[in-house]
Design a protein around this nucleic acid. Structure first.
Lengths: 347, 347
DNA sequence: ATGAAAGCGCTAACAT
DNA sequence: ATGTTAGCGCTTTCAT
């Protein structure tokens, strides 16, 4: 089945006995004046030949591309899929589409995507970068790529970004535990090599310090790659280590919800009841926190909102010629559910 | 900050004192013979001007587009994000990119995406359609769009598709319950308006019939939209209805894992222990099944594998001129975890 | 109000 | 082995 070549504006022009310029003017809704008679005729024959505009031709000419790229570590993480949905929603409202790029936590792949999106003439990117070295990113910005950094901030650059106030979140979570009477509070975390985790950690530190409490941090070795179900495994592993402590914690603060699930799982497996014996608080606010038993107390980030905002900012950045980088700091919120309890009064 | 116009092959040609054809020949790795001297010179000046090929120009000329579209109801559903990851993986291996389209369960939006992907000259789609009316799809196929249907089969058309053997899965799940001594087995499901659910349902029917058992089906009203957390709510609601039955079930089979989580939740809230009092089995095999307590016994579908296969099939379909539609039926597998127990012997 | 023509960046006959 | 040229589908000056 060989498909007939689709009709172009030239075909329509020939059939309607007009010039292709006129056809272009009406079919592209240019607003350019065309007599009602011709307009109607063109519209009619366009319909007859099932005309579908070729956006590539238009794009090559106008140099306006209506697709943006989104680069995230992995869509498998519910946090990113929420963000992505928010991005797509506002992109759609602006008649943009989204090219999805999962970097799979691989810096090389991230850079590959940086390049191919640029080659495809995409001039707007929303990026949750996992690379330490931001040089490549700078290069593309210099070449005219518009980039909004989300989640993982990019320090050096004059880059617009929307991120969560991780420090505040860490503070909020830890203080909540303290307010519930806990004094021996552990922080379990994937490697502290990303701004988000570093922020959460510093929030934990500040809250502990202001309460005069002793720190207890368990961090995964830096060479691990954790994602999706692995974060869960990570939570289990870190908890096992934690339970070997002489002075066991009465509360655990996990760097994200998936890890928290692992913590709860391991606690349960080791015979500790949550929250009766040990309280657990997470960080993210993914939907599954409601599903799990006990429902997870956590710090909620406005995920989809982050996506929407990032996309709006991108749309603006792509319109304007100059650029003054904007930083947005989204505020965290405590979601009280069932995994945190006031500390039991030891008799 | 106005960005200088990026260099084209013509710029390079001028600088290197050769024709743009020659430049194209070396920069596009055409394999066409070019003297080592010129090649080297061209490569050098390309690097000097930071040449980045404009794939749009190439595409317009060659009529070969290296992005495919993926249309799914919502990436928020972990099942689809797994599939998507599989798709992107094999797309990437073939140097293709993925334009993501969430139809949000909206037929109108689905059709919009059908159109815009076509306008963007995308000539390969992986589609989990939610529309009843497949006419639009047929139209685009006729115009040359290559479409692989996943998950939701498209009956009428000569369309290639890869789907799960839902009937077999339904059979497997129900038989597992029966093998554990259950006789009063409920099937709770979102509306039976999609091939997948209908297949699962028919598997349930067959297994029940062959064991001579009485049916007990609870179906959501058809006008609801269930997705993500709502499937969870749906499971709760259906379970409430179920518990009003005179003759309560000893086992519940849910049409998907998210719904099963809701079932377990409501059972728990109503004072029934899973699996001690009532067994629950799900359908999907999403990762969270391992995280939830009790871990969910379920029917696992090879999600990412489905994505990979669908993408491979698409790549082939896009190469060949003729087309003989292929149907792939992926086999389900029982994952025994902790939410199903042999029925208690009533004294 | 309409048309002619150039050109966006690239490739691919077709010459030489 | 290299160059010349036409053209992919579209928009947009510039004439008329």
């Amino acid at each position: 089945m060989t498909t007939p070549k689709p009709a172009t504006i030239h075909d329509i022009a020939r059939l309607a006995g007009v010039s292709s310029a006129t056809v272009s003017r009406v079919l592209s809704n240019s607003g350019y004046p065309v007599s009602a008679k011709l307009r109607e005729k063109i519209l009619r024959t366009a319909k007859e030949v099932h005309y579908v505009p070729n956006l590539l031709g238009k794009q090559l000419k106008t140099n306006i591309n209506t697709t943006i790229g989104v680069i995230v570590p992995s869509i498998t993480n519910p946090f990113y899929s929420s963000v992505l949905l928010g991005i797509e929603e506002t992109a759609r409202k602006n008649n943009y589409n989204v090219l999805l790029c999962n970097s799979m936590h691989d810096p090389v792949l991230e850079e590959t995507y940086l390049r191919t999106t640029f080659e495809k003439q995409i001039r707007g990117l929303i990026l949750s970068s996992i690379t330490e070295d931001k040089k490549a990113i700078q290069d593309y910005i210099r070449m005219g790529q518009r980039i909004i950094a989300i989640d993982q901030k990019i320090d050096d650059a004059g880059i617009s970004q929307v991120e969560f106030d991780y420090h505040k979140g860490g503070l909020l979570a830890t203080r909540h535990l303290i307010a519930n009477g806990h004094r021996r509070i552990a922080f379990v975390t994937a490697p502290l090599d990303r701004p988000s985790r570093i922020g959460i950690h510093s929030g934990y530190l500040e809250a502990m310090r202001e309460a005069g409490l002793e720190l207890l941090v368990k961090e995964t070795a830096r060479d691990h790659k954790y994602d999706g179900i692995y974060e869960f495994e990570n939570g289990k592993a870190l908890t096992s280590m934690l339970l070997e402590e002489e002075d066991k914690p009465t509360a655990v603060f996990a760097c994200n919800d998936m890890t928290a699930f692992g913590v709860i799982h391991q606690l349960d497996a080791s015979g500790f009841r949550v929250p009766d014996d040990i309280s657990v608080i997470g960080f993210d606010g993914i939907d599954f926190g409601e599903i799990v038993r006990p429902a997870l107390t956590t710090i909620k980030q406005p995920n989809a909102e982050m996506g929407r905002l990032a996309c709006s900012m991108l749309m603006e950045a792509m319109q304007s010629d100059g650029f003054e980088p904007v930083h947005l700091l989204l505020q965290p919120k405590l979601i009280e559910r069932q995994s945190v309890a006031p500390i039991a009064i030891e008799a």
